[in-house]
Amino acid sequence: MRDRLDAVNDGVGAPCAWSTKRKSWLEFALDPAPGLAGVDLENAVFKSSN
């Protein structure tokens, strides 16, 4: 994962930070994008990889 994040951030010039947390499928289904609460998720942009 770290290699992928480094490749995505290459040349951007901004710091890249990440963290991980294991969740059950139900926890993820109930909160797929933590930290984006209150944001209109229909127009939100984020990238995820597993």
Rank of each mutant, 00 (worst) to 15 (best):
A44H: 01
G35D: 00
L26Y: 04
V8N: 04
E27N: 14
G13W: 02
D6Y: 06
A33G: 03
V12K: 15
G38H: 00
V8P: 00
G35W: 03
P15D: 14
K47Y: 07
D31N: 15
S24T: 15
A37N: 09
D40K: 01
A33V: 14
W25V: 12
D10C: 07
L5G: 12
L30S: 08
A29K: 05
R2Y: 05
L36Q: 11
R2Q: 03
A37C: 04
L30K: 08
R22F: 13
G38S: 03
K21M: 10
E42D: 13
W18K: 00
A29P: 04
N50W: 14
G13E: 01
S19W: 13
L26A: 01
G13I: 01
A17I: 13
G38T: 04
N43G: 08
A7E: 11
N43M: 13
A7I: 05
L5Y: 09
V45W: 03
A14S: 05
K47W: 10
C16T: 13
N50D: 12
N43E: 13
L36R: 08
G11I: 03
S19A: 15
A44T: 03
D31H: 08
A7G: 07
G13M: 02
L36D: 02
W25M: 12
L41P: 01
R2S: 01
G38R: 01
P34H: 02
D31F: 07
S19C: 10
K21F: 07
A29M: 11
A29E: 10
L41I: 03
A14L: 05
V45N: 05
S48R: 13
K21I: 11
N9C: 04
K23P: 00
P15K: 07
D6V: 13
K47S: 07
D6R: 09
D40V: 01
G11T: 04
C16V: 11
A29H: 08
D40H: 09
C16S: 13
K23W: 11
A33P: 05
N43L: 15
D10H: 13
S49R: 09
K23G: 02
A33R: 08
S19F: 10
V39K: 05
